[in-house]
Structure formats: structure tokens, C-alpha cells
Design a protein around this nucleic acid. Structure first.
Lengths: 217, 217
DNA sequence: ACTCAATTGTGAACTCGTGCACGAACGGGC
DNA sequence: GCCCGTTCGTGCACGAGTTCACAATTGAGT
């Protein structure tokens, strides 16, 4: 039987970069399962993902031993194990702030699949949008953020408002008790050190790509 | 006068991570200018951005000398210099593929500001959307991608289609001549080595954050 | 003109993550 | 039961990027 000792809170110093690769592994393993493939070698998985096999083995070794020598990894069990490490085996309550076109896209995103994330509240400052129902969730005024987030025990906030209001929104989300933020606003948020923030920055990605492109054409 | 010798194609080995920080600097410098602040020290800038002052100085030193000892950096000139390094001082033609809610959000994003990026073509596979006009751009069938991208000399593609079609879309965009891709699809694209790809992965960001969160509440 | 506080640019040290390479383990075939 | 090809897990070395720390420069004040 495959080792199941998943040591989460005990191994203290696992690089964040490793953690950020785990979702990629989960995805690839799910795709393999969908193709009825029950076993992969680190070599094959590496090729699919575009990293080295050594890196995959090293990454996994932070958490335990999941493979069988001479055979590889069981796609189902490894996926389950990583999902458990990432705590994807439970449902997280998410607040979405900002229901412009970006917020709309976030709310309607169907890539969550059999997802670990539930949008439990949506907020917008525009009174005309307040009251509208989206998938059974009623859009509320931005003035309710802290109270509602606390009431619903929401753990994660998604900030999809213009840069000018993003800091303010972050503040009230944190006041309400979230410990993690995804922000689409192109500013650096000022947050207490115990708050986790991930910036989604497509414009920055664009702007950094043009460095490499040839000017003339 | 501040050194203006911006050596782009000559310094060969500037780490990509440095390049990816440059847009952040540009943003911060623009915000400072908007606040009528003409000069910043690396210390102050570092505090605003949330990195170390040494890192900023080191990053800039890859490209030249932009500061004045005892004084700091001129916000206007430094911003101009970095924008030039990133080639933001010209307009880039972008193709957007997929006009679902995500594509809609991308097309309507107003954070481009006085932007270096122009959405010159939009494609969707849904015949009902084809023909619709968005900001003067007519949505075209996905079957035209390669031809139109080539005709319009488009350099950058944004992939906002479901994971299942993303690889196919990437292929035709590259066939049409783009050298850079932004993709929102949660799959690893297979592309030739000379093609630049940046993945925007909010779901991955979420999934990696939950690793750190406390389960109970 | 001189002093002094501020601040840059960079050599050197350090840290952290990656990749190599190999011993150990597994399992199929004979 | 033994051999052999495959693949894992990991010690070790390497390398990329970060931070330290300081000489050099600047300009304001006296």
C-alpha cells in the first residue's frame, strides 16, 4: 500500500514555490485519470507538465513517499494525497468583491469543476447591482462586507474592484476575518503579515513579455 | 543628467524574474508622479512595493545607472527609462480568443490606461457572437485566426477559451505569427521554444493558498 | 571651503532551490 | 529463485538570485 502519512503542519519549511506547483500536479493527475491511465512515472509526468522528473520527485519527497520503484505513481492515490495536502478535500467559503465584468467572469467560471471553493457572498458598491441573484447568492452592498464575511465564516476573499478601492476592500475583508486574498487590482496591497495574498496580474504579464519581443515587424 | 543608455538586446542574461518586476516599478513610479512626487529613494520605493531596497537597486543596475547618490531616483525619468526597456513606448497588437465572460472582461478592461496594448482582433467559435462589434472590432470566427493574425501583424495572443480548446487555439495563433501568449486555460501548453507563454492561473493560486489556511474555524 | 547626512551602485557572501547521479527497491520473465 | 530493466528517493554539488555592507558621490548647511 502507498504511504499515506501526509505531514502538513509538521514539516515547517517547505518552499512556497513547491506548494504552488502542487495544483499543477493535481491537474495533470486528474487528466491522466480521465484518460484511464492508472500509473505514471515521474518522467512521463514531467514531460506532460514541462518540468524535470527530478523536480517532481523532490517536490513530492517533502511530503512522503508516494511512488513505487520500477512502477511509478498511482494517479488516483497521488492525486488524492496532494489534494489532501492542499486541503482541497473540504469546501472553502469565498467572498467575491466587485461584480463588474471581471467579477462576473469569476462568478461564472465553471473551471472550478467539482470544486473546493464556494462563492458564498458577492459584494458590489453599485446600488443597482445590489439585490441581484447569482447562482442563489444575492449581491450585497460593499458596506456589509466585514459583517457578512464574519457571519458566513468566509476564509478567502477575491478582490475584483478598481485599483482605487482595492486597499479599502482588502481592509474590510480582513476585518471580517478572511486570511487569504486573491487580488486582480494592479496595486501592492498593504496587509498584516499573517494574511496570505496572491496577485493575479495579466497586465504585468503582458508588460514583461514585450521586453523579449522584436520591435520591428 | 540621468544616464539614458538603456542596453536591451546587449545584456543577454538578465533573469526573467527581474523583468517581471519591472512593471511593478513602472506602476509605483506612475502613482508617485500622480501624487506630484518627483523623487524617490530606493528605500521609499521598496517600502511602497514590498521588496528590499537592495533588490531594487540591483534590478536597475542590470540596465544602467538611474539614480543620484544622496537624492534617489527621478520618478519621471526612471519610469520613462523602464517603460522604454520594456518597450511600452510603442503599441502592440493583441488578439483575444474566446469571448465568454472571461474574454468579455479582458476586452472591457480599462486598466490598460494610456496603454501599450491594442486589442486588434477578437475571435469566438460561437457563430452567434461572430459579427458583433466590440469597441470597433468585429468578432470573427475561430477558423480565421491564423489568417487574420498574420494579416494584422498581431504579435500577442490572449487565450480565454476552455481548457479543451486551448492547445488548438495556441497552435493557430502561433501559425498566424504571434510570439507571445497569455493563457487563462488551466493546462500546460505545448509550444515551440521560441514562443513566450505566461499562464494566468487564479485557480492554482487559490488551491495553493489553502495549504496554509487553518482548517477549523 | 568644509562637514555631514543621505543614498546610490556593486563586490562578496550567502541562501535557497534545482539537477545530477546513484543506491535501493520492485516486478516481470525465464 | 534469479536476473534484469525500470523507476523511486535522496545526498551532494552547483547555480541563480538575494542581501549585506561599504566605498563613492551628492548636496545642503555653516
Amino acid at each position: 500500500m502507498i504511504e499515506r502519512t501526509v505531514s502538513r503542519n509538521f514539516e515547517p519549511d517547505i518552499p512556497d514555490i513547491v506548494i504552488r506547483r502542487l495544483p499543477i500536479y493535481v491537474r495533470a493527475l486528474r487528466a491522466l485519470q480521465a484518460s484511464e491511465i492508472g500509473t505514471v512515472s515521474s518522467d512521463r509526468l514531467a514531460e506532460l507538465i514541462g518540468v524535470t522528473a527530478a523536480q517532481i520527485r523532490r517536490d513530492l519527497s517533502y511530503f512522503g513517499k508516494f511512488g513505487k520503484q520500477g512502477k511509478g505513481y498511482d494517479t488516483f492515490h497521488l492525486e488524492q494525497a496532494i489534494a489532501q495536502i492542499l486541503q482541497l478535500d473540504r469546501e472553502w467559503q469565498v467572498a467575491l468583491v466587485g461584480f463588474g465584468s471581471l467579477g462576473h467572469a469569476v462568478a461564472h467560471y465553471r473551471g472550478f469543476g467539482p470544486s473546493s471553493f464556494h462563492i458564498a457572498a458577492i459584494f458590489d458598491r453599485n446600488p443597482e447591482k445590489v439585490g441581484r441573484q447569482i447562482d442563489g447568492v444575492t449581491i450585497m452592498s460593499d458596506r456589509c462586507i466585514a459583517a457578512e464575511v464574519a457571519r458566513l465564516r468566509i476564509q478567502i476573499g477575491i478582490i475584483a474592484v478598481p485599483a482605487a478601492s482595492a486597499q479599502e476592500v482588502a481592509d474590510v475583508l480582513i476585518e471580517g476575518g478572511v486570511h487569504a486574498l486573491i487580488t486582480y487590482a494592479p496595486i501592492v496591497l498593504k496587509t498584516p503579515p499573517n494574511i496570505l495574498v496572491r496577485e493575479i496580474d495579466p497586465i504585468g504579464a503582458l508588460q514583461s513579455m514585450t521586453y523579449y519581443l522584436e520591435s520591428e515587424q
